[in-house]
């Protein structure tokens, strides 16, 4: 029993944190939302160099994994730094293709996994248990769609829809396209991919929540009213204490889910981390006051992402149902 990240895993988190901290992800995220993907692509290239997209991919397909714990560790940092792009979706697509290969359909894995693992390609997808929109379909080179027991490479996407989070650009894949696989293995692989999407989203949400808390703690220490920092007021302290409690109890669920990959654990992690992050966003907005309600203030990048991730890959009710079904 040693339910703790090892030194290597902690070093990995620290190095990603340092790398992303120096990469001006705020500018990249804002540009991404305006359709300028260049700066975001540069961040992605660094993530690829760090091996992030190789983590879910088996060694047989030029990956490093599957390493769900390291993937979760990485996604906490992606969330903390508001990294734009279909990172969750790329990981989910990798899990989908890898599981299909395990179930006797290796061709799509051979064809796509090496380039996804190296970061040369990035993917987005829709799955039967997710919503109709694929994140960043206009920018992802590969748009996978699973429906009716078929995996297809979509021929394009419908009109891009705006998310509350400007960095999340949503579009439904167009029907048809190349048929990559069919049969019961597709449905099973899609469920597996949904679990990876939920795990990565949970980890990302945890990072978003931690960033919101850090920024808000810093703000209430320096913002003065009535001649004193507002962080000395008990109403403020208690609200932030509650945010920390929720995040610190979400963290072991996220790491535990990555360790066991049990559907009930993943569901518990998704609902808890997403709601903890959303709770953090509500507290962050309230405690910043009106400045927090502006798009111009950088806090907005995390505030809007927390709301989006709460519902991404299934709303809290869906995941609560799965958590209960997976119990015992």
């Amino acid at each position: 029993m040693r339910f703790l990240l090892d030194d290597e895993q902690r070093d990995f988190a620290r190095s990603l944190d340092a790398m992303l901290g120096a990469a001006d992800t705020v500018t990249a995220t804002r540009a991404w939302g305006e359709g300028d993907h260049g700066p975001g692509r540069a961040v992605w290239a660094r993530l690829a160099d760090a091996g992030v997209f190789a983590l879910p991919v088996p060694r047989a397909y030029e990956g490093l994994g599957p390493l769900p714990v390291e993937t979760a560790v990485a996604f906490v940092e992606l969330g903390r730094h508001a990294v734009p792009g279909p990172a969750v979706e790329t990981v989910a697509a990798e899990a989908l293709l890898a599981r299909l290969a395990e179930l006797g359909e290796p061709e799509p894995a051979k064809r796509f996994l090496p380039s996804l693992a190296s970061g040369a390609a990035c993917a987005t997808l829709t799955l039967p248990e997710g919503g109709p929109y694929a994140l960043d379909a206009e920018e992802a080179g590969l748009v996978f769609a699973v429906a009716d027991g078929e995996l297809r490479l979509a021929p394009g996407h419908a009109r891009v829809r705006r998310s509350l989070d400007p960095a999340r650009r949503l579009a439904a894949p167009l029907p048809g396209g190349e048929l990559l696989a069919t049969g019961p293995a597709v449905a099973a692989a899609a469920r597996h991919a949904t679990d990876w999407a939920a795990l990565a989203t949970a980890a990302q949400a945890l990072g978003v929540g931690l960033a919101l808390l850090d920024r808000t703690v810093a703000y209430v220490k320096q913002r003065r009213q009535f001649g004193t920092p507002i962080g000395s007021f008990q109403a403020v302290k208690h609200r932030l204490a509650d945010v920390l409690i929720r995040l610190e109890f979400a963290r072991p669920l996220v790491l535990g889910a990555a360790l066991t990959m049990a559907p009930g654990d993943i569901a518990a992690a998704k609902v808890t981390a997403a709601e903890a992050a959303y709770g953090a966003s509500r507290a962050a907005l309230q405690l910043h006051g009106a400045i927090g309600y502006t798009a111009e203030f950088d806090l907005s990048l995390w505030l809007t992402k927390a709301r989006a991730l709460r519902g991404a890959w299934g709303d809290p009710g869906v995941w609560r149902g799965r958590a209960l079904a997976g119990w015992g």
Binding site: M1, R2, F3, L4, E248, F249, A250, R251, P252, L253, L255, G256, G264, D265, A268, V271, T272, P316, G317, R320, G321, A323, L324, W327
Partner: peptide
């Protein structure tokens, strides 16, 4: 489903507390 969600929260919370405790025990052992 409202009550179902609260039952779900009970099992999720128990698991969260269990894992939090294992993390604390592991840190303490370290």
């Amino acid at each position: 489903t409202a009550l179902r969600d609260r039952v779900a929260d009970a099992v999720i919370g128990a698991r969260a507390y269990e894992l939090f405790t294992w993390a604390c025990a592991s840190r303490s052992a370290a």
